[in-house]
Amino acid sequence: MTTEPLLSVRDLDVLFDTARGRVPAVRGVSFELAAGEVFGLVGESGSGKSTVLSAIMRLLPGVAVANASQMNFQGSDLMSMSAGQLRGIRGTGIGLIPQRPMTSLSPVTPLRKQLRWFLGDMPQSEIVDLLDQVGLRAVAERLDGYPFEFSGGQLQRLLIMLAALARRPSLLLADEPTTTLDATVQAQVLRLILDLRDRLGLGVVFVSHDLGVIAQVCDRVGVMYAGRLVEAAPIGELFDNPRHPYTQALLRALPSRYKRGERIKVIEGTAAGANRLPGCAFAPRCPRAEAMCREQEPETRSVGGALVRCHFPEDAAGANKPKEAAA
């Protein structure tokens, strides 16, 4: 018996129809997620990581066109589901923690009423119990208040309660859930997500641009660049032994790796327009790029414990050293 992954995405493409033609936002992204696993998606803004989440939820804006050879959630194909079936899966099968808790509830309706929309006629005692479980005992007494009367951290924990706890979905999508929160609150929210993962066996896709946050919560990480998943590896492997030149450059740019006063190495150039290039999207900024990198799109290959989309991935032995080092 083979265990079916909780979520399996194969060759996901998302195109945006714009005035200047079709712009690819996500290209050929594939990954799998097991129950109880936290898979991180990391990348710069515009790299397509949040779009992947919207595509899984089938909540892309009208101008987007999504295609995938497979997008299975618990064995059923999300791509072929009707609007009604999707509505049945959203919230109950797949939960989403939004990026901006302060604006993700209606600003003009008291919390109590909004909770009733999401939870139905749940008895007050159960609501209080749910709030208690996410550390919001105090909020339970202020349910007649409006969202703007609560802090971002409180609202995010409330949304996590709604998305991940109240209706027990098996898959949780977290879309940069801590970017708008300050550092201490950020830690609380991350701990809460991990705690729910442990208690409920949730599978989590965790999107962030912050490698530090990713390192704290994820079991596996996918690095995205210009719509591509360029490297995916277990967390330890990715940090200890990055193979894609973009991953290596990202890790080299981590401020924590530098001493005070030392100059941080930045990645030269910009990712703008890279999603339209014919060859490898990272080629223009890559120290290791050869002629073929600009012409031919690299296939995903397995190197050690990682999947890497590069013609010249650096393996553990240190072969294919960057040219600058070899020279």
Binding site: M57, R90, T103
Partner: peptide, 15 residues
């Protein structure tokens, strides 16, 4: 449609 609260409503499967 583009507001965060409508998106969250959809994500929660509201009718």
């Amino acid at each position: 449609v583009r507001t965060d609260y409508v998106r969250f409503g959809h994500a929660m499967g509201l009718p």
